[in-house]
Design a binder for these strands. Sequence first.
RNA 1: GUGGAUGUAGCUCAGUUGGUUAGAGCGCUAGACUGUGGCUCUGGAGGUCGCGGGUUCGAGCCCCGUCAUCCACCCCA
Length: 442
Amino acid sequence: MSKVEPRTLRGFRDYLPAKMIPRQRMIESIERTFQRFGFAPLMTPALEYLEILTGKYGDEGDQLLYRFKDNGGRDVGLRYDLTVPLARVVAQYPGEITLPFRRYQIAPVWRAENPARGRFREFMQCDADIVGSKDMAADAELVQLGCELLEGLGVERFKVRVNHRKILSGLMARLGITSREAESGILRTIDKLPKIGEAETMKLLRADNGLEEGSIAKVFEFLRIAGTSTEVLAGLEKIFEEGSIGRQGVTELREVFSILEAAELSSAVDIDLSIARGLSYYTGTIYETFLTDLAGYGSVMSGGRYDELVGVFRGESVPAVGISLGIDRLLEGLVELKLLKEARAVAPVLVTVFGADTAGYAARIARWIRAAGVGCELYPAYAKMKKQFTRANDMGQRWVVIAGSDEMAKGQAAVKDMQLGQQELVAIEQLGQYLADRVNAV
RNA sequence: GUGGAUGUAGCUCAGUUGGUUAGAGCGCUAGACUGUGGCUCUGGAGGUCGCGGGUUCGAGCCCCGUCAUCCACCCCA
Protein backbone atom coordinates (compact mmCIF):
# COMPACT_ATOMS: atom_id res chain seq x y z
CA MET A 1 0.00 0.00 0.00
CA SER A 2 1.28 3.45 -0.79
CA LYS A 3 1.72 5.85 2.08
CA VAL A 4 -1.24 8.12 2.68
CA GLU A 5 -0.54 11.64 3.88
CA PRO A 6 -2.14 12.06 7.33
CA ARG A 7 -4.10 15.31 7.43
CA THR A 8 -7.38 16.87 8.52
CA LEU A 9 -9.84 18.94 6.51
CA ARG A 10 -9.63 22.70 6.71
CA GLY A 11 -11.65 24.00 9.63
CA PHE A 12 -11.83 20.54 11.22
CA ARG A 13 -9.66 19.61 14.16
CA ASP A 14 -8.36 16.67 16.13
CA TYR A 15 -8.57 17.02 19.87
CA LEU A 16 -5.54 15.45 21.48
CA PRO A 17 -5.86 14.42 25.13
CA ALA A 18 -4.28 17.61 26.45
CA LYS A 19 -7.25 19.55 25.02
CA MET A 20 -9.81 16.79 25.20
CA ILE A 21 -9.50 16.24 28.94
CA PRO A 22 -10.41 19.83 29.88
CA ARG A 23 -12.98 19.94 27.09
CA GLN A 24 -14.70 16.89 28.43
CA ARG A 25 -14.70 18.39 31.90
CA MET A 26 -16.31 21.51 30.50
CA ILE A 27 -19.01 19.47 28.81
CA GLU A 28 -19.71 17.60 32.05
CA SER A 29 -20.05 20.87 33.92
CA ILE A 30 -22.41 22.28 31.31
CA GLU A 31 -24.52 19.16 31.29
CA ARG A 32 -24.83 19.23 35.07
CA THR A 33 -25.96 22.85 34.91
CA PHE A 34 -28.56 22.06 32.25
CA GLN A 35 -29.96 19.29 34.36
CA ARG A 36 -29.89 21.41 37.49
CA PHE A 37 -32.20 23.79 35.61
CA GLY A 38 -34.52 20.96 34.66
CA PHE A 39 -33.69 20.67 30.97
CA ALA A 40 -34.03 17.20 29.47
CA PRO A 41 -31.59 15.72 26.97
CA LEU A 42 -32.41 15.36 23.29
CA MET A 43 -30.40 13.88 20.46
CA THR A 44 -31.05 14.32 16.76
CA PRO A 45 -29.18 13.09 13.67
CA ALA A 46 -26.25 14.93 12.16
CA LEU A 47 -27.88 14.64 8.74
CA GLU A 48 -31.26 16.15 7.91
CA TYR A 49 -33.29 16.35 4.74
CA LEU A 50 -32.00 19.45 3.02
CA GLU A 51 -35.46 21.06 2.92
CA ILE A 52 -35.59 20.97 6.72
CA LEU A 53 -32.53 23.21 6.87
CA THR A 54 -32.80 25.59 3.93
CA GLY A 55 -34.49 28.94 4.26
CA LYS A 56 -34.12 29.12 8.04
CA TYR A 57 -30.83 30.92 8.40
CA GLY A 58 -31.05 33.71 5.85
CA ASP A 59 -29.24 33.83 2.53
CA GLU A 60 -25.82 33.79 4.14
CA GLY A 61 -26.72 30.76 6.19
CA ASP A 62 -28.01 28.82 3.22
CA GLN A 63 -24.67 29.33 1.52
CA LEU A 64 -22.88 27.88 4.50
CA LEU A 65 -24.81 24.61 4.66
CA TYR A 66 -22.88 21.45 4.00
CA ARG A 67 -25.09 19.78 1.42
CA PHE A 68 -24.81 16.74 -0.81
CA LYS A 69 -26.65 13.75 -2.17
CA ASP A 70 -26.59 10.64 -0.02
CA ASN A 71 -25.97 7.18 -1.44
CA GLY A 72 -29.65 6.84 -2.29
CA GLY A 73 -29.72 10.12 -4.18
CA ARG A 74 -31.58 12.11 -1.49
CA ASP A 75 -30.74 15.78 -0.96
CA VAL A 76 -29.35 16.03 2.55
CA GLY A 77 -27.45 18.51 4.70
CA LEU A 78 -25.37 18.48 7.88
CA ARG A 79 -27.15 20.36 10.64
CA TYR A 80 -26.15 24.02 10.88
CA ASP A 81 -27.38 24.50 14.41
CA LEU A 82 -29.43 22.65 17.02
CA THR A 83 -32.41 24.98 16.98
CA VAL A 84 -33.94 24.01 13.66
CA PRO A 85 -33.74 20.27 14.44
CA LEU A 86 -35.45 21.06 17.76
CA ALA A 87 -38.24 22.89 15.96
CA ARG A 88 -38.60 19.90 13.65
CA VAL A 89 -38.82 17.49 16.60
CA VAL A 90 -41.42 19.59 18.39
CA ALA A 91 -43.56 19.65 15.26
CA GLN A 92 -43.00 15.99 14.49
CA TYR A 93 -43.96 14.45 17.87
CA PRO A 94 -46.90 16.52 19.13
CA GLY A 95 -48.28 13.64 21.16
CA GLU A 96 -45.05 12.86 22.99
CA ILE A 97 -43.91 16.30 23.95
CA THR A 98 -45.54 18.21 26.76
CA LEU A 99 -45.35 21.96 26.41
CA PRO A 100 -43.63 23.96 27.71
CA PHE A 101 -40.78 21.71 26.64
CA ARG A 102 -37.32 22.30 28.08
CA ARG A 103 -34.56 20.39 26.44
CA TYR A 104 -30.81 20.61 26.11
CA GLN A 105 -28.58 19.19 23.41
CA ILE A 106 -24.80 19.06 23.26
CA ALA A 107 -23.71 18.11 19.79
CA PRO A 108 -21.52 19.13 16.88
CA VAL A 109 -22.79 21.33 14.06
CA TRP A 110 -21.21 22.11 10.70
CA ARG A 111 -20.85 25.35 8.80
CA ALA A 112 -18.89 25.74 5.57
CA GLU A 113 -17.41 29.04 6.72
CA ASN A 114 -13.99 30.45 6.19
CA PRO A 115 -12.10 29.34 9.29
CA ALA A 116 -10.48 32.00 11.43
CA ARG A 117 -9.47 32.55 15.04
CA GLY A 118 -12.17 30.94 17.15
CA ARG A 119 -14.12 29.91 14.08
CA PHE A 120 -14.30 26.35 12.85
CA ARG A 121 -16.26 24.35 10.33
CA GLU A 122 -17.15 21.70 12.86
CA PHE A 123 -17.85 22.76 16.41
CA MET A 124 -19.79 21.69 19.45
CA GLN A 125 -22.83 23.66 20.53
CA CYS A 126 -24.50 23.39 23.90
CA ASP A 127 -28.12 24.47 23.53
CA ALA A 128 -30.93 24.90 25.99
CA ASP A 129 -34.37 25.95 24.81
CA ILE A 130 -37.84 26.42 26.20
CA VAL A 131 -40.55 25.71 23.64
CA GLY A 132 -44.15 26.64 24.28
CA SER A 133 -43.86 29.74 26.44
CA LYS A 134 -44.37 33.24 25.10
CA ASP A 135 -43.64 34.80 28.47
CA MET A 136 -40.52 36.70 29.44
CA ALA A 137 -40.00 34.44 32.44
CA ALA A 138 -38.60 31.96 29.93
CA ASP A 139 -36.27 34.52 28.36
CA ALA A 140 -35.01 35.59 31.77
CA GLU A 141 -34.52 32.00 32.85
CA LEU A 142 -32.31 31.33 29.84
CA VAL A 143 -30.20 34.39 30.50
CA GLN A 144 -29.79 33.20 34.05
CA LEU A 145 -28.86 29.75 32.80
CA GLY A 146 -26.32 31.27 30.44
CA CYS A 147 -24.64 33.17 33.26
CA GLU A 148 -24.50 30.09 35.43
CA LEU A 149 -23.06 28.01 32.61
CA LEU A 150 -20.13 30.36 32.27
CA GLU A 151 -19.68 30.79 36.00
CA GLY A 152 -19.71 27.02 36.39
CA LEU A 153 -16.81 26.90 33.93
CA GLY A 154 -14.85 29.37 36.00
CA VAL A 155 -15.40 32.22 33.55
CA GLU A 156 -16.01 35.37 35.58
CA ARG A 157 -15.35 38.18 33.17
CA PHE A 158 -18.06 38.17 30.52
CA LYS A 159 -21.01 40.27 29.47
CA VAL A 160 -24.31 39.14 28.02
CA ARG A 161 -25.53 41.79 25.60
CA VAL A 162 -29.23 41.81 25.03
CA ASN A 163 -31.35 43.43 22.37
CA HIS A 164 -34.79 42.88 20.93
CA ARG A 165 -35.82 42.31 17.34
CA LYS A 166 -39.01 44.28 17.83
CA ILE A 167 -37.01 47.29 18.96
CA LEU A 168 -34.98 47.04 15.77
CA SER A 169 -38.19 46.66 13.77
CA GLY A 170 -39.51 49.74 15.52
CA LEU A 171 -36.46 51.65 14.39
CA MET A 172 -36.97 50.44 10.82
CA ALA A 173 -40.58 51.54 10.94
CA ARG A 174 -39.44 55.01 12.02
CA LEU A 175 -37.04 55.12 9.09
CA GLY A 176 -39.76 54.00 6.71
CA ILE A 177 -37.75 50.92 5.77
CA THR A 178 -39.93 48.06 4.61
CA SER A 179 -37.78 45.75 2.51
CA ARG A 180 -35.99 42.96 4.35
CA GLU A 181 -32.86 43.58 2.32
CA ALA A 182 -32.58 47.23 3.24
CA GLU A 183 -33.31 46.32 6.84
CA SER A 184 -30.61 43.70 7.14
CA GLY A 185 -28.19 46.01 5.36
CA ILE A 186 -28.75 48.73 7.92
CA LEU A 187 -28.55 46.29 10.81
CA ARG A 188 -25.26 45.02 9.46
CA THR A 189 -23.86 48.54 9.40
CA ILE A 190 -25.15 49.27 12.88
CA ASP A 191 -23.53 46.08 14.09
CA LYS A 192 -20.13 47.50 13.13
CA LEU A 193 -20.51 50.59 15.32
CA PRO A 194 -18.42 49.36 18.25
CA LYS A 195 -15.63 48.47 15.83
CA ILE A 196 -15.48 51.40 13.44
CA GLY A 197 -16.92 54.27 15.45
CA GLU A 198 -19.67 56.80 14.83
CA ALA A 199 -18.18 58.77 11.98
CA GLU A 200 -17.50 55.71 9.84
CA THR A 201 -20.89 54.25 10.65
CA MET A 202 -22.56 57.43 9.47
CA LYS A 203 -20.60 57.33 6.25
CA LEU A 204 -21.60 53.76 5.60
CA LEU A 205 -25.25 54.44 6.37
CA ARG A 206 -25.16 57.16 3.75
CA ALA A 207 -23.02 55.37 1.17
CA ASP A 208 -23.99 51.72 1.49
CA ASN A 209 -27.52 51.98 2.76
CA GLY A 210 -28.58 55.16 1.03
CA LEU A 211 -30.05 56.79 4.12
CA GLU A 212 -30.91 60.48 4.16
CA GLU A 213 -29.54 62.82 6.81
CA GLY A 214 -32.85 62.79 8.66
CA SER A 215 -32.83 59.01 8.84
CA ILE A 216 -29.20 58.92 9.91
CA ALA A 217 -30.06 61.33 12.69
CA LYS A 218 -32.84 59.00 13.77
CA VAL A 219 -30.47 56.03 13.77
CA PHE A 220 -28.06 57.88 16.02
CA GLU A 221 -30.76 59.27 18.24
CA PHE A 222 -31.46 55.57 18.76
CA LEU A 223 -27.88 54.32 19.05
CA ARG A 224 -26.79 57.05 21.45
CA ILE A 225 -29.26 55.89 24.02
CA ALA A 226 -26.84 54.57 26.60
CA GLY A 227 -26.43 53.89 30.27
CA THR A 228 -27.90 51.35 32.62
CA SER A 229 -30.62 49.10 31.35
CA THR A 230 -33.20 51.22 33.15
CA GLU A 231 -31.95 54.38 31.46
CA VAL A 232 -31.82 52.76 28.05
CA LEU A 233 -35.35 51.46 28.41
CA ALA A 234 -36.58 54.89 29.47
CA GLY A 235 -34.83 56.48 26.50
CA LEU A 236 -36.36 54.00 24.11
CA GLU A 237 -39.79 54.62 25.50
CA LYS A 238 -39.47 58.26 24.55
CA ILE A 239 -38.70 57.32 20.96
CA PHE A 240 -41.36 54.72 20.36
CA GLU A 241 -45.03 55.65 20.49
CA GLU A 242 -47.40 53.73 22.64
CA GLY A 243 -48.76 50.69 20.82
CA SER A 244 -45.96 50.64 18.25
CA ILE A 245 -43.92 47.52 17.57
CA GLY A 246 -40.85 49.16 19.05
CA ARG A 247 -42.77 49.85 22.24
CA GLN A 248 -43.75 46.20 22.51
CA GLY A 249 -40.09 45.26 22.37
CA VAL A 250 -39.27 47.78 25.10
CA THR A 251 -42.01 46.43 27.31
CA GLU A 252 -40.77 42.88 26.88
CA LEU A 253 -37.14 43.81 27.58
CA ARG A 254 -38.24 45.75 30.63
CA GLU A 255 -39.93 42.64 31.91
CA VAL A 256 -36.84 40.52 31.34
CA PHE A 257 -34.65 42.98 33.20
CA SER A 258 -37.03 43.36 36.09
CA ILE A 259 -36.94 39.60 36.57
CA LEU A 260 -33.14 39.54 36.30
CA GLU A 261 -32.84 42.34 38.81
CA ALA A 262 -35.18 40.67 41.27
CA ALA A 263 -33.14 37.50 40.89
CA GLU A 264 -29.99 39.58 41.52
CA LEU A 265 -28.32 38.66 38.26
CA SER A 266 -28.45 41.77 36.18
CA SER A 267 -24.81 42.78 36.68
CA ALA A 268 -23.52 40.50 33.93
CA VAL A 269 -26.22 41.63 31.51
CA ASP A 270 -26.42 44.80 29.44
CA ILE A 271 -28.66 46.20 26.76
CA ASP A 272 -26.75 46.71 23.53
CA LEU A 273 -28.82 48.21 20.76
CA SER A 274 -26.24 47.36 18.11
CA ILE A 275 -26.64 43.59 18.52
CA ALA A 276 -28.52 42.33 15.49
CA ARG A 277 -27.85 38.60 14.93
CA GLY A 278 -27.77 37.27 11.45
CA LEU A 279 -29.96 34.24 11.80
CA SER A 280 -33.26 35.23 10.34
CA TYR A 281 -35.54 33.19 12.58
CA TYR A 282 -35.23 35.43 15.64
CA THR A 283 -38.34 37.44 16.50
CA GLY A 284 -37.85 38.76 20.04
CA THR A 285 -35.05 39.00 22.57
CA ILE A 286 -31.57 38.35 21.18
CA TYR A 287 -28.36 37.67 23.09
CA GLU A 288 -24.67 37.66 22.40
CA THR A 289 -22.03 37.01 25.04
CA PHE A 290 -18.46 38.26 24.94
CA LEU A 291 -15.40 37.58 27.01
CA THR A 292 -14.38 40.85 28.62
CA ASP A 293 -10.67 40.21 28.21
CA LEU A 294 -10.83 39.20 24.56
CA ALA A 295 -12.24 42.21 22.80
CA GLY A 296 -12.84 41.43 19.17
CA TYR A 297 -13.13 37.72 19.78
CA GLY A 298 -16.50 36.42 18.62
CA SER A 299 -19.53 35.71 20.72
CA VAL A 300 -19.18 32.58 22.82
CA MET A 301 -22.82 32.17 23.74
CA SER A 302 -25.85 33.54 22.03
CA GLY A 303 -29.47 32.98 21.30
CA GLY A 304 -32.85 34.55 21.31
CA ARG A 305 -36.56 34.13 20.86
CA TYR A 306 -37.93 32.55 17.69
CA ASP A 307 -41.71 32.43 17.88
CA GLU A 308 -42.35 31.51 14.28
CA LEU A 309 -39.82 28.75 13.60
CA VAL A 310 -41.79 25.77 14.89
CA GLY A 311 -44.74 26.97 12.83
CA VAL A 312 -42.75 26.37 9.68
CA PHE A 313 -42.93 22.65 10.44
CA ARG A 314 -46.27 22.56 12.19
CA GLY A 315 -48.65 25.06 10.66
CA GLU A 316 -49.61 26.63 13.97
CA SER A 317 -46.86 28.69 15.54
CA VAL A 318 -45.34 27.78 18.89
CA PRO A 319 -43.30 30.38 20.77
CA ALA A 320 -39.75 29.44 21.82
CA VAL A 321 -36.53 30.85 23.27
CA GLY A 322 -33.09 29.37 23.40
CA ILE A 323 -29.46 29.94 24.17
CA SER A 324 -26.41 28.30 22.69
CA LEU A 325 -22.91 28.06 24.07
CA GLY A 326 -20.08 27.38 21.62
CA ILE A 327 -17.74 25.25 23.59
CA ASP A 328 -14.92 25.07 21.05
CA ARG A 329 -14.70 28.80 20.66
CA LEU A 330 -14.87 29.24 24.41
CA LEU A 331 -12.15 26.62 24.88
CA GLU A 332 -9.84 28.39 22.44
CA GLY A 333 -10.63 31.68 24.13
CA LEU A 334 -9.73 30.27 27.53
CA VAL A 335 -6.49 28.91 26.07
CA GLU A 336 -5.64 32.37 24.78
CA LEU A 337 -6.42 33.86 28.16
CA LYS A 338 -4.31 31.13 29.76
CA LEU A 339 -7.27 30.24 31.95
CA LEU A 340 -7.22 26.66 30.84
CA LYS A 341 -4.80 24.27 32.40
CA GLU A 342 -4.09 21.48 30.02
CA ALA A 343 -4.12 18.08 31.62
CA ARG A 344 -2.48 15.03 30.17
CA ALA A 345 -3.42 12.18 32.44
CA VAL A 346 -6.89 11.14 33.49
CA ALA A 347 -5.68 8.94 36.32
CA PRO A 348 -3.79 10.60 39.19
CA VAL A 349 -1.92 7.42 40.16
CA LEU A 350 0.78 5.47 38.34
CA VAL A 351 1.74 1.96 39.42
CA THR A 352 5.24 0.94 38.40
CA VAL A 353 6.08 -2.31 36.68
CA PHE A 354 9.68 -3.53 36.61
CA GLY A 355 9.58 -6.97 35.09
CA ALA A 356 7.73 -10.23 34.58
CA ASP A 357 8.42 -11.27 38.19
CA THR A 358 6.51 -8.34 39.72
CA ALA A 359 4.02 -7.58 36.93
CA GLY A 360 1.35 -9.75 38.52
CA TYR A 361 1.81 -8.09 41.89
CA ALA A 362 1.54 -4.66 40.30
CA ALA A 363 -1.60 -5.68 38.43
CA ARG A 364 -3.16 -6.85 41.67
CA ILE A 365 -2.30 -3.57 43.38
CA ALA A 366 -3.77 -1.60 40.47
CA ARG A 367 -6.97 -3.61 40.78
CA TRP A 368 -7.30 -2.72 44.45
CA ILE A 369 -6.69 0.92 43.82
CA ARG A 370 -9.29 1.03 41.06
CA ALA A 371 -11.76 -0.83 43.24
CA ALA A 372 -11.42 2.04 45.72
CA GLY A 373 -12.62 4.36 42.98
CA VAL A 374 -9.23 5.89 42.30
CA GLY A 375 -8.03 6.33 38.72
CA CYS A 376 -4.87 4.33 38.29
CA GLU A 377 -2.58 3.66 35.36
CA LEU A 378 -0.34 0.64 35.21
CA TYR A 379 2.94 1.41 33.46
CA PRO A 380 2.48 -0.57 30.26
CA ALA A 381 6.03 -1.87 29.86
CA TYR A 382 8.95 -3.22 31.88
CA ALA A 383 11.12 -0.20 32.37
CA LYS A 384 13.62 1.42 34.66
CA MET A 385 12.27 3.22 37.64
CA LYS A 386 13.68 6.51 36.46
CA LYS A 387 11.79 6.29 33.23
CA GLN A 388 8.52 5.57 34.97
CA PHE A 389 8.98 8.45 37.38
CA THR A 390 9.74 10.79 34.51
CA ARG A 391 6.53 9.74 32.80
CA ALA A 392 4.46 10.35 35.93
CA ASN A 393 6.05 13.76 36.18
CA ASP A 394 5.36 14.62 32.54
CA MET A 395 1.81 13.40 32.76
CA GLY A 396 1.09 15.36 35.89
CA GLN A 397 0.35 12.26 37.93
CA ARG A 398 0.82 13.09 41.56
CA TRP A 399 1.18 9.63 43.09
CA VAL A 400 3.52 6.86 42.07
CA VAL A 401 3.01 3.44 43.64
CA ILE A 402 6.20 1.40 43.64
CA ALA A 403 5.53 -2.30 43.39
CA GLY A 404 8.94 -3.96 43.25
CA SER A 405 10.24 -7.24 44.57
CA ASP A 406 11.09 -5.82 48.03
CA GLU A 407 7.55 -4.56 48.47
CA MET A 408 6.09 -7.77 47.11
CA ALA A 409 7.97 -9.81 49.66
CA LYS A 410 6.36 -7.79 52.46
CA GLY A 411 2.89 -7.41 50.94
CA GLN A 412 3.42 -3.68 50.76
CA ALA A 413 3.80 -0.90 48.25
CA ALA A 414 5.67 2.38 48.48
CA VAL A 415 3.57 5.41 47.64
CA LYS A 416 5.41 8.53 46.59
CA ASP A 417 3.71 11.91 46.51
CA MET A 418 5.43 13.64 43.61
CA GLN A 419 4.35 17.06 44.74
CA LEU A 420 5.62 16.79 48.30
CA GLY A 421 8.49 14.52 47.37
CA GLN A 422 7.60 12.23 50.28
CA GLN A 423 7.22 8.50 50.29
CA GLU A 424 5.51 6.00 52.58
CA LEU A 425 5.22 2.24 52.80
CA VAL A 426 1.61 1.03 52.85
CA ALA A 427 0.19 -2.46 53.26
CA ILE A 428 -1.67 -3.35 50.10
CA GLU A 429 -4.98 -4.00 51.79
CA GLN A 430 -4.91 -0.38 52.99
CA LEU A 431 -3.66 1.05 49.74
CA GLY A 432 -7.06 1.75 48.18
CA GLN A 433 -8.26 3.70 51.18
CA TYR A 434 -4.91 5.46 51.59
CA LEU A 435 -4.99 6.78 48.03
CA ALA A 436 -8.72 7.51 48.00
CA ASP A 437 -8.29 9.75 51.06
CA ARG A 438 -5.48 11.68 49.44
CA VAL A 439 -6.92 11.95 45.93
CA ASN A 440 -10.30 13.11 47.18
CA ALA A 441 -8.68 15.67 49.43
CA VAL A 442 -7.30 17.55 46.41
C1' G B 1 -15.44 34.54 -1.05
C1' U B 2 -11.94 39.37 -1.42
C1' G B 3 -7.21 41.81 -0.03
C1' G B 4 -2.35 41.29 2.58
C1' A B 5 1.46 38.29 4.97
C1' U B 6 3.83 33.71 6.10
C1' G B 7 5.40 28.41 5.21
C1' U B 8 13.22 25.89 7.21
C1' A B 9 14.03 19.85 12.93
C1' G B 10 8.38 17.80 17.34
C1' C B 11 7.98 23.52 18.91
C1' U B 12 9.84 28.88 18.44
C1' C B 13 12.86 30.79 14.92
C1' A B 14 18.06 32.18 12.38
C1' G B 15 19.98 31.36 7.51
C1' U B 16 24.03 37.29 5.02
C1' U B 17 23.95 40.08 -2.66
C1' G B 18 21.53 32.43 -5.17
C1' G B 19 27.72 29.14 -4.08
C1' U B 20 30.00 22.82 -1.43
C1' U B 21 28.31 18.57 4.14
C1' A B 22 21.31 23.88 6.48
C1' G B 23 22.04 26.18 12.25
C1' A B 24 20.41 27.79 17.50
C1' G B 25 17.22 27.47 21.78
C1' C B 26 13.54 24.44 23.78
C1' G B 27 11.78 19.42 23.43
C1' C B 28 13.03 14.16 22.63
C1' U B 29 16.66 10.26 23.74
C1' A B 30 21.05 7.88 26.30
C1' G B 31 24.36 8.44 30.20
C1' A B 32 26.76 10.91 34.73
C1' C B 33 23.08 8.72 39.37
C1' U B 34 23.34 0.00 39.07
C1' G B 35 15.13 1.06 43.28
C1' U B 36 13.24 7.45 42.55
C1' G B 37 10.93 12.61 38.73
C1' G B 38 11.84 18.19 38.64
C1' C B 39 17.88 21.07 38.76
C1' U B 40 22.90 20.58 36.47
C1' C B 41 26.54 18.47 33.05
C1' U B 42 27.94 15.33 28.74
C1' G B 43 26.80 12.60 24.30
C1' G B 44 23.02 11.17 20.43
C1' A B 45 18.97 10.96 17.09
C1' G B 46 15.97 14.05 14.09
C1' G B 47 15.22 18.33 8.11
C1' U B 48 12.12 15.49 0.64
C1' C B 49 13.88 23.67 3.46
C1' G B 50 4.92 22.92 2.51
C1' C B 51 4.12 20.58 -2.47
C1' G B 52 4.75 20.79 -8.06
C1' G B 53 7.06 23.09 -12.01
C1' G B 54 10.51 26.90 -14.08
C1' U B 55 15.14 30.18 -14.45
C1' U B 56 20.46 28.98 -13.47
C1' C B 57 26.74 25.75 -14.02
C1' G B 58 24.35 25.93 -9.13
C1' A B 59 17.97 27.48 -5.59
C1' G B 60 16.17 27.42 1.45
C1' C B 61 16.96 32.26 -1.13
C1' C B 62 14.59 34.33 -7.80
C1' C B 63 9.74 33.30 -11.02
C1' C B 64 4.87 30.67 -11.77
C1' G B 65 1.26 27.44 -9.89
C1' U B 66 -0.83 24.83 -5.80
C1' C B 67 -1.94 23.60 -0.73
C1' A B 68 -1.89 25.18 4.27
C1' U B 69 -1.70 28.84 8.16
C1' C B 70 -2.23 33.88 10.12
C1' C B 71 -4.34 39.00 9.81
C1' A B 72 -8.18 42.35 7.85
C1' C B 73 -13.15 42.53 5.43
C1' C B 74 -17.60 39.49 5.84
C1' C B 75 -20.21 36.71 9.22
C1' C B 76 -20.80 34.27 13.54
C1' A B 77 -20.73 29.68 18.41
